[in-house]
Amino acid sequence: MKIALKINTEASTFEADPDMPLLWLIRDEAKLKGTKFGCGKGICGACSVHIDGELVRSCLYPAHMAHEKAVTTIEGLSKGQDRLHFVQQAWLEVQVPQCGYCQPGFMMAAADFLKRHKNPTEEDIQNSISNICRCGTYPRIIKAILLAAQTKNHESID
């Protein structure tokens, strides 16, 4: 079927099997490789994207459901070319990534989390984000989210 959707700023149409996971459409058809595959079962969060502003694990999301929706991937998280999203900025500041493979998913989850939590505690973070990082960057992820929350509150950016 023809699937028309907006990915980041670009409106595109793809011919794809309606039941194909959106993840493969994003990676293999739209050629945006920042969104990763980790488990294929909605557990690890490596494939996290935003669809119409909602956090979604794209490995379990059939492509046809994204028809006429707006998808944001890690490549589109920062709106401008010259500026990082405040979550990415915090990630860089805290030097979170090791292998880095899980990080796009974590940043997408963190950006979504911070929309709902203005002044999160460490516990809020630990209880809300269930993504997996095998390199064990969790201590820095918590630090980066706390830092991002502060920046956001101070600068009221989105």
């Binding site: 991937t73 860089l92 030097q95 979170v96 796009p104």
Partner: peptide
């Protein structure tokens, strides 16, 4: 800082 941090943060 890591030389690969930025590209990893940008995806």
């Amino acid at each position: 800082k890591r030389v690969d941090a930025e590209e990893k943060v940008l995806g």
